[in-house]
């Protein structure tokens, strides 16, 4: 390759930017090894390319933070909508509501005078007519503690489907007195079962007594 050819085809710039074929590149190298003008051209183009890369890199780096940071900052949330305030505030409000409910509904009901009718005696006998309890009357029952019962047993009140409405551990009188049970619930008129177990829920069943809650005013059969 001679100098005129190299000049016409912009060989120095194309050499630096990798725009020459392998054969043309080898020919141009052979030429500019002995051509001071082309060597200077290659030198200038190389310096331009290296500094252009640096300039574009600097500009790209400078543009990144601007792209990441929104041009218009999002408005800050009011203090009462920030998570570190809102979550504890909601928890406190829920607790306050619960306390109000207890003080206005639950506790007054418990503190109010209640008429206690005689306990319904359950003797475990299966009859055609079940022992009956008027609706809304306290569910208080007496039954003989099964022989060999442990000092504490598990009592359950279940509906016809087997769903347990009330359950808990009770002590068995040691002096042979009957077991006195009170279930603090007021289920709808229907048939129910009291189940005594040796252990907690799911333990060995000791006895089973059925009874019926009837609507007030309904006549006993």
């Amino acid at each position: 390759m001679d100098h005129e050819t190299a000049k016409q085809m912009n060989a120095p710039e194309r050499y630096v930017t990798g725009d020459l074929s392998d054969a043309a590149r080898d020919e141009f190298e052979e030429h500019f090894a002995g051509c001071t003008l082309c060597l200077d051209e290659v030198s200038t183009a190389t310096a331009f390319a290296a500094n252009a890369r640096a300039v574009f890199r600097d500009r790209a780096a400078a543009a990144v933070p601007a792209a990441v940071t929104p041009a218009i900052p999002l408005p800050a949330r009011p203090w009462f909508l920030r998570w570190n305030f809102a979550i504890p505030a909601l928890a406190a409000a829920a607790l306050a509501l619960f306390a109000v409910y207890q003080n206005t509904v639950t506790l007054p009901g418990l503190r109010a005078p209640q008429s206690f009718m005689a306990a319904v005696v359950l003797d475990g006998t299966t009859r055609a007519a079940l022992p009956q309890v008027p609706a809304n009357a306290p569910l208080r029952f007496q039954m003989a503690a099964p022989a060999g019962s442990p000092a504490r047993i598990w009592a359950e009140l279940a509906d016809e489907s087997g769903r347990v409405l009330s359950a808990g551990e009770v002590g068995v009188p040691s002096n042979g007195e009957p077991l006195d049970l009170y279930f603090p619930v007021h289920p709808e008129p229907n048939r129910y079962t009291i189940i005594l177990r040796a252990e907690k829920a799911g333990g060995t069943e000791i006895s089973r007594n059925r009874f019926e809650i009837i609507a007030q005013g309904a006549s006993k059969p």
Binding site: T46, A47, F48, A50, N51, A52, R53, A54, V55, D58
Partner: peptide
């Protein structure tokens, strides 16, 4: 290693000239 290859050729004065040309 492109940065290392470019390093001997890059300086602030040249970058300013290139930036002006661009």
């Amino acid at each position: 290693d492109r940065v290392d290859l470019d390093a001997p050729l890059v300086n602030e004065q040249r970058k300013r000239a290139v930036a002006k040309a661009l």
